[in-house]
């Protein structure tokens, strides 16, 4: 396992795109959060969730760890390198696990930086948008347990999305189609939920990976959430585990 980890780490590390993708993930996440924080203007005293607002960038930023995870395996199929890889590491579950650990680790690091950046942006910009103690909103700070939970949860969310994407790509094997599937699985259910009425909407929001997973970001009005924060993250984790499991089985069963 250690050798497999090392080998996969070397592969990821020596790809120029890895660094750029991770940097891009941080920039996109923090950038979107900053843009939303700058654009928002709040007049009412309730109904807003400053922490959730500060973490908005995750909505778009998650695409990049997802793409990174997809590329980790789909490019090997694209170039035919998968055969070399499987010759070097014939235990396919171990190989997938090594890839998963590496992708998760890199996403974790990038996620920590991105979430920290988002919270900083929220702390600095949101008071200017009317979300300050004078208007009844607490400043964004991880000294609040719910904000800490949202921050840690968002990092975990990114890691789980990356793992889900890795599983999908292991099943699909083609870069383009994998990315299409991952983005559709992430983004279509929340849009669909907007298009239908309760109770279908609520059920959708409870089982869709993105809406359920992002429940972890809520710090106010928890009762109105479709699913409890940690339970929601659990749903996403189930998705990720299922996709990795199916991916692993197929990796083992199919010819390379």
């Amino acid at each position: 396992m250690t050798e497999a980890l090392r080998a996969e780490w070397t592969k990821l590390r020596t790809l120029a795109s890895t660094g750029w993708l991770l940097l891009g993930a941080i920039v996109l996440t923090v950038g979107v959060s900053a843009a939303v924080a700058a654009a928002v203007h709040v007049t009412s005293r309730t109904g807003q969730d400053p922490t959730k607002l500060a973490l908005t960038g995750i909505y778009l930023g998650q695409t990049i760890p997802a793409v990174l995870a997809v590329l980790t395996i789909s490019e090997e199929y694209g170039t035919g390198m998968i055969r070399t890889t499987l010759t070097a590491m014939p235990r396919r579950f171990v190989l997938l696990a090594a890839k998963a650990v590496n992708v998760a680790g890199l996403t974790f690091v990038a996620g920590c930086l991105a979430v920290a950046g988002c919270l900083l942006v929220g702390r600095l910009l949101l008071p200017g948008a009317g979300l300050d103690p004078a208007h009844g909103y607490a400043l964004v700070s991880i000294s609040h347990s719910s904000t800490l939970r949202a921050a840690v949860g968002s990092v975990v969310y990114l890691v789980l999305v990356a793992l889900l994407s890795l599983g999908v790509a292991t099943v699909v094997r083609d870069t383009a189609v994998s990315i299409g599937v991952v983005l559709a699985v992430l983004y279509l259910p929340p849009i669909l939920a907007q298009a239908v009425s309760d109770p279908l909407r609520r059920h959708l929001e409870q089982i869709a990976p993105m809406t359920a997973g992002l429940a972890i970001q809520a710090t106010t009005d928890l009762r109105s959430l479709p699913i409890a924060p940690w339970a929601g993250l659990g749903v996403l984790a189930a998705w990720a585990a299922a996709s990795l499991l199916v991916g692993g089985m197929l990796l083992r069963l199919r010819d390379a």
Binding site: V67, L71, A176
Partner: peptide
């Protein structure tokens, strides 16, 4: 590149 083009396209 498929990856960047599709991601950008969908976003």
């Amino acid at each position: 590149k498929s990856a960047s083009a599709i991601t950008t396209g969908v976003l």
